[in-house]
Design a protein around this nucleic acid. Sequence first.
DNA 1: CGGACGTTTCGGCGCCGGCCGAACCGTCCG
DNA 2: CGGACGGTTCGGCCGGCGCCGAAACGTCCG
Lengths: 236, 236
Amino acid sequence: MTTRDPQATALARLAALFADETRAACLLALLDGRAWTASELARHAGVAASTLSEHVSRLVAGGLLTEERQGRHRYVRLADARVAQLLEDLAAQVTPERAERPRTLRASSAGSAMARGRTCYDHLAGRLGIAVTDALTARGLLEQERGFALTDAGLAWFASAGIGLERRGRRPLARACLDWTERRPHLAGVAGAALCRHALDTGWCVRIGSERAVRVTAAGERALFDLLGVEAVALR
Amino acid sequence: MTTRDPQATALARLAALFADETRAACLLALLDGRAWTASELARHAGVAASTLSEHVSRLVAGGLLTEERQGRHRYVRLADARVAQLLEDLAAQVTPERAERPRTLRASSAGSAMARGRTCYDHLAGRLGIAVTDALTARGLLEQERGFALTDAGLAWFASAGIGLERRGRRPLARACLDWTERRPHLAGVAGAALCRHALDTGWCVRIGSERAVRVTAAGERALFDLLGVEAVALR
DNA sequence: CGGACGTTTCGGCGCCGGCCGAACCGTCCG
DNA sequence: CGGACGGTTCGGCCGGCGCCGAAACGTCCG
């Protein structure tokens, strides 16, 4: 007891950052990959600004968030893709039991927009994410049966579509991310991020309001069908 | 504030299970994939049996552990591979800063045995795990550059070596698991588990004492060289 | 049957951490 | 310059949780 396992200590300390409902709500909100101000998070989580300030400070100190100060604002975002992945993994573990039906119509429609298409940190999720992942797989661009990897044809497809895949650090090119709403894996990793970025840059999708939900535009439907054979009906 | 996000609640509740040093120590110990009795865990964690009993009950109630009662013993193990993976992910996030040097000779030699070879829930890790993963990759049996997947040749190799790969559930055939000591990915998933099971069954490796560390036998060195070209020096 | 032993329950203690409001600090802008 | 506003710090309150030891329970075994 005098000599505790330092790994256990560190693990407990890390987990403690997630182990508070207010902080968890903030982290899940930040899973949209964008920077939020402290007061936005306070409103979102329903706590006083002072309370939230302390939470954010702990998350930053713990390496889960990075901050950028601009004038009187404190912008904060998830530190990196590793943190986002960890958060996804925890959320995925938890969501099976989230069988509760939404109570209000507003919550229900917001939920269905999220289920239709959303960002998951820096890649696409929801039926949109699944449709793209399935289309890539059906065309032999992505291997799912024996793991999760791009094929030769997949590499060529990204190149021909003008979507650059730059390897940086140890982040894998392709990675599976379990979809909360679909209960199936969708494409994450460098390729997932590049595809999502391209989709938003070229207007295939636009964000709905200030939340994580995205909507596929008419141009996007056309492009997804032309390039991947994604039927518009799969996005409804 | 009256209507809290149920997902945030569930996430915080799950994380809270990891957010205690004693529970974390138990979970890390259970990462050897075997069942421990409550009193073994109490001794390992350095707390009273009564204290540990409550911890174990919480972990079982939270779905992280499953229990088997045999007579007056309560055996407990990680609930499934998903839990083990989550634990690995959390541990991997934490270990980079674990730069502390071991203090005692005993801890140091135990540490070096663990670094040489160990099990990580149900697959091989440490230099042994890395050596096997590298050998598979070098021989074109495993694809790492574009994700983490078995190749056609890889499937054939497992079949010819008499190592069955039965897909059950959604567990991927091949998956990357970040090695704590080597800071590089090693093979996990169905293939990793099958390989580890085969290695222990056929006597390629034996467990050292009652811990997670494993030792490669002379027969194991021969087999690993013959089948995969693994040099014995990579295992030292 | 009776003692040993693994486990659990219970009461009680102490600490940590989340919460708020009030005061304060900096920045922005009219 | 002065008010508005975002953010932070501080003190104080409260609840939850981890810890223990004592007592009870169940099983095993001589």
